[in-house]
Design a protein around this nucleic acid. Sequence first.
DNA 1: TAGATTGTTAATCGATTAACAATC
DNA 2: TAGATTGTTAATCGATTAACAATC
Lengths: 213, 213
Amino acid sequence: MVTYKGQISKAVIRRLPKYRRCLNELIKKGITKVSSSELADLMGYTASQIRQDLNNFGGFGQQGYGYSVDKLYEEIDRILGLNKSYNKIIVGFGRLGQAMGSYIINSEPNLRIVGIFDVKQTIQSAEHDEFKDAQVMTCKSIISFVKENPVDIALIAVPSYKAQVVAETVVEAGVKAIWNFTAVDLDLPDDIKIQDIHAADSLYALAYYINEK
Amino acid sequence: MVTYKGQISKAVIRRLPKYRRCLNELIKKGITKVSSSELADLMGYTASQIRQDLNNFGGFGQQGYGYSVDKLYEEIDRILGLNKSYNKIIVGFGRLGQAMGSYIINSEPNLRIVGIFDVKQTIQSAEHDEFKDAQVMTCKSIISFVKENPVDIALIAVPSYKAQVVAETVVEAGVKAIWNFTAVDLDLPDDIKIQDIHAADSLYALAYYINEK
DNA sequence: TAGATTGTTAATCGATTAACAATC
DNA sequence: TAGATTGTTAATCGATTAACAATC
């Protein structure tokens, strides 16, 4: 069961953003040092799991002392690749696409929205509109656009029935990573990285737990 | 390691909505019968896992034949509790709250949106607006409203810095289940069911996999 | 140095896969 | 009946927890 160095389990990767969030809170509070058991209390994991998780990437801690909050935060940022910049397009610019676009503009400086595509080229703009200067292109121009402009990530927020076709289009254009907000499980080549936000699935799980026992 | 009957692992519950989605596709195609190995091909699981999963709830299949698509779909619906109705409030009615509200109105007939709350009582309405007759109430009235009107689920889509306070308010009012769209891990009593949509977390995981290897 | 806390190995737990008897 | 496919037990795999030696 020897995992090669650098081959990290999905369970660990899923937890890293939560570590990052927690460390960010500590930084805001001016706390500079934290032990695995303090983190355990804050996050609801065991101290043992936290040490295991962090040791996948090397010894970030110091025996007898704990972890430096700043250093750990930076390391996790680096591990996740959040110290780099990414070019991004949004395909489907209804309320959901706009909501996520707004989030990115306000909270993710490393993500540059380089193109926005929708069947409609108009934006129903709210009052504080981050998008008032944005140009919305027709989906037909996705391929030519991506071939001219390197794109790392495509956010897809089109209606479900268009999801597979749109996804195939961005993949054909050369995009390798998809952040999928549609209710569809996309069927794409194995080398394409996909992260699904299947909001309805979590709603159904919620219904299950409401009725449980 | 005897799990009591009826005590189903979280891993299984997480997969049920995907079974449901897949079965729904088969129904649309007019397919009435499916075997565990056909489902395995469609969903990317093993046939063995599918049989294990379904057998948690009793024998839905027929040896030598397979599963009835309609029956299995209905059973999963019932297991998830989707055959019942739920009253729901939306707290935070910006683009994200509106997007999810629109989804619910159009796709989830069993979910009734009984109240909408926001600091602003106006709706920036798009052209096809499902909400044009909706009344948006001030967050201050949440407690009195919920005490008058039974509410099963609160969708929270307020800015992060308000998330904890808003969540505490709906819990104080008596709501037992929260569908959380904020970036915050809510700290609430153990008997409150929470499902988080931490979209940013999945984006960070995507960044990790883009850089992997 | 003594105390604290990590890094890391071993033990446990739970989830997935394999195998096959039951049965339609 | 013969063939197919489930239901279910056993084996494997992976992830979590416990324990403790290393070391700051």
